[in-house]
């Protein structure tokens, strides 16, 4: 059985924790041993959030070792750019093309890094970078909070596993009245990767 390690990076309030729970649930459903790690940080909103999800035959550490992450899922561009140390040459980085300026940028005391800089940081070891307009897709569905599930849809295409396995996990984990919307978000994310 292969191992798969994921790192989700985003900004507090973007839904990284729900997404990592769904990803962990999918791993269990697909027969893996699964561990996750996250930190409930200081503020309710607005800080960097990093969450690790690990699938394998037998997983010891809930934290992934640097140089061993297979998929980075960046909910926000700058947050994706922080983690080159976790990549290896065959890693895939999935980045939502969406900027949330941090305080120093808002104040005009720093500049938001251009796309090429983020790509340069992340592609150093040969990792593949895939951009996705997940926030745009989510807004198109009428709810920007769907961004995490859109990203999971895209990720599911890369990782494999039957579509209905992923969807059954989503059905179990989101409130009943949002299931249809989440499934649509998942499918849109999934089809965005096949293009």
């Amino acid at each position: 059985m292969r191992k798969l390690d994921f790192l989700m990076a985003g900004v507090g309030g973007q839904g990284t924790i729900l997404a990592s729970n769904i990803l962990a649930g999918a791993g269990v459903e697909l027969g893996y041993d699964v561990k996750t790690a996250e930190v409930h940080g200081m503020a309710q909103r607005g800080g960097s959030v990093e969450s690790h999800v690990r699938w394998g035959e037998k997983v010891y550490s809930p934290l992934v070792e640097q140089g061993k992450v297979d998929y980075v899922i960046g909910f926000e561009m700058l947050e994706a750019g922080r983690w080159p140390m976790y990549l290896h040459k065959d890693s895939v980085v999935l980045i939502n093309r969406y900027r949330i300026p941090p305080p120093a940028v808002n104040l005009g005391k720093a500049t938001y890094p251009p796309d090429q800089e983020i790509e340069a940081i992340l592609s150093g070891k040969g990792s593949r970078i895939l951009w996705i307009d997940a926030t745009e897709i989510a807004k198109g569905l009428g709810n920007p909070a769907m961004v995490g599930v859109v990203l999971l849809g895209a990720l599911s295409r890369l990782v494999g596993g039957a579509e209905d396995v992923w969807q059954s996990v989503i059905e179990r984990q989101v409130p009943a009245k949002f299931v249809d919307l989440n499934i649509r978000a998942f499918q849109e994310g999934r089809s965005s990767m096949s293009a």
């Binding site: 607005g46 922080r82 305080p103 150093g124």
Partner: peptide, 27 residues
């Protein structure tokens, strides 16, 4: 022995360290 592409990684890590930080803030 896993020191392959170490230099590239160090450069990338240094560049990442210079990205503007995102501390927790009042909502």
């Amino acid at each position: 022995s896993g020191a392959e592409a170490e230099a590239v990684a160090t450069m990338a890590v240094n560049a990442a360290a210079k990205l503007p930080i995102r501390p927790p803030i009042l909502c």
